[in-house]
Design a protein around this nucleic acid. Structure first.
Lengths: 208, 208, 208, 208
DNA sequence: CCCTAACCGAGACGGTACGTCGTGTCTTAGA
DNA sequence: TCTAAGACACGACGTACCGTCTCGGTTAGGG
């Protein structure tokens, strides 16, 4: 596996050399790496998961197959990297001073990302693959699901700090109660997730 | 091998003729059909989704590839049929007279089925595939998810009938609140689903 | 298309019954038999030897595959029968009283049949097949090549009778000398066989 | 097995590189190429034309099917190449100073090759196929039949040079008169071709 | 005057081979 | 040392025919 995943795409070069190069004794080609991740992303969105092949990525990226195999182990591995780079820009939920507002904003954005964006398509494909690839399942949990849960907790933590919620409030349970219906609708039932539906979820959690 | 081979698989016959035959103008061979579905099931459990191939099913079932292609369009199609047959035996939740007891029994059984049984493995594989196969997604919703939701609703409906719950109780929302965490843990977070966790879910729904 | 369709194909009935029927205890269906032979012929001409399949013949003849397998053993077997029926109408060379005239007429006709007619196409296909099917080779020699050689001999025998040739004339050698270049051009070199070329062959044989 | 394996098959290299390699950007694997041609030859002789399949060749040569399809279009194409390599060793007829002797030697050898050798079996199979494959027919004429005719002409040309034959002698016609009965017997009538029969052919041509 | 044997069409079946696609490994030449 | 290029062995794909096997329908002839 590569370690590069934690850095934002293209921002931080791996190669010491400041000069552009195409892969030589100074290290790998950043150009190739970027082209591969972009090609993988695009192919997934354009042709679906089955349409992503190592050969296809190589051709689309103008890269030799071997270059892909040198750095990744499978197409899911490539997609995982692409997804991690996409998610690297994910920011903390807003902190407006009002829990309900913050939650709504955060959850609507998350739902939209999962259900509609290209990044969400990659996530769904990876989660699907993870159902029969336990190593990928672990990576996915470590690199996305757990960090995401931390982000999901943030508004509650701020509310506790502010005194808006009691310190005894079970934030873990609250997050699960809010989040799982969203994943359920995205992954299982396919039902749409409207802002008013999200409001309902929040109201049920907080007022009842 | 799975244990299911010992169970009578033939619950839902597709062939009208009551006579056993080996495939002729009257229709397909029930023998071949059953062997294919069982082989598909077994291969999925033994070798995982990627290990299921049409050639493998054909070989394991002692059947010609063409016989599979004559009746199904893809390996997912075969698995879908196998899953539907497995689920055909699913029965309504119990009706003991006490909502909490019924729910607990039902949900614990469902969680166990989804997370641990062979049938659950097939379901997870199909749901995974459905993430990038919208036709399959529709079939899966029509043939499993919606009927399942009706079964999930049953204890609440009985409780309303009995007067244990007010007629205004939002059963749909309640089902979603109970079920989605279970699917979330099975599909996304991989956390275990203990009976006491299920109890907690029910308590939070009913008492709060 | 074959020319035979206009001619009565049914010359040699296999069924004793004078009544038309569709196959029953009294024997096979003449209708089916004829349709099969015609379909085989047509397919050969239209789609080439590889385009002739038992399934294709059955479909084109509106007949069940089994009906073909009941009476023939292979597609070559069917074609052989079709060819034999086509050749059944072959008549003796003319006997005008002049050897050269008779030979020329006979050979030009034979060359045209072999190289250009549908029947010739069937013959070439069968001879090709006979190169790796010795049983067929024997049938072809017995049912066509030897009878044909007798017809080829006929003009010489008449010439000897008439006194135009001496009784010592080696008719066998003469036939081989005339015929083999024709087969060579048809089968091997693909060169055209013009009437003047045939005349040259005859002149070289008789005058030199 | 054939006896040909003892002969050096590699007469006509297709790969410019003098270095042995196993297939890379410099071109194809000579090893694979040779194994395929030998396997094709052997299968033809052992199992007949119908017994030659691409899958069979690949298995016998220890090669992937795709490697065959990369370089050839069909099994006939492979056999054609195998035949061409076999024939590459064909040498000019002898030039002893006596036409009759040279002809007899040449024709007896040719007849034996066509009728009895493994190479002849390949030739007959190809000629058979060429009856319904005009592209193959052209290749066969260009690569074997015409060069062969030039070799057949050679003894006559030498005899003319020597003054043994008049310059007006029609060598083309003579070759056709000698060769076509040989092909006729090999391909059509199946009669044996004894040395004395060949002598008779020559005598009839030259003395009459 | 039905019974029944022989033939028919239809078409499902277990197979074999087809020709194609993608995999992951390897080797080479060039920068 | 990394890259592009691409040949290779492998394995699965989905298709086309093979030859075999019922099955139900029909049509006389013999009982």
């Amino acid at each position: 596996m590569t370690t590069k995943s934690s850095k934002p795409r293209r921002a931080a070069k791996k190669v010491p050399s400041p000069v552009e190069h195409r892969g030589n004794r100074h290290g790998r080609s950043e150009e190739a790496r970027t082209a591969i991740l972009e090609a993988a992303d695009n192919l997934l969105v354009e042709r679906g998961f089955a349409g992503v092949t190592i050969e296809g990525i190589a051709a689309a990226a103008g890269v030799a197959k071997q270059t892909i195999y040198r750095w990744w182990t499978s197409k899911t591995d490539v997609l995982m990297d692409a997804f991690v780079e996409d998610m690297a820009q994910a920011s903390l939920p807003p902190d407006s001073g009002n829990l309900e507002t913050d939650l709504k904003h955060h959850l609507v954005g998350l739902a939209k990302m999962l259900a509609e964006s290209d990044t969400g398509a990659v996530f769904r494909a990876l989660l699907a693959e993870a159902q029969h690839d336990s190593e990928l399942a672990i990576r996915l949990r470590t690199q996305f699901i757990e960090p995401q849960r931390l982000r999901d907790l943030f508004p509650f933590q701020q509310a506790v700090k502010r005194g808006e919620l009691s310190p005894e409030f079970d934030t873990e349970a609250a997050v699960e109660q809010l989040l799982s219906p969203i994943y359920y609708r995205v992954l299982v039932s396919g039902q749409p997730i409207s802002p008013s539906y999200v409001e309902g979820l929040i109201r049920r959690l907080l007022l009842k």
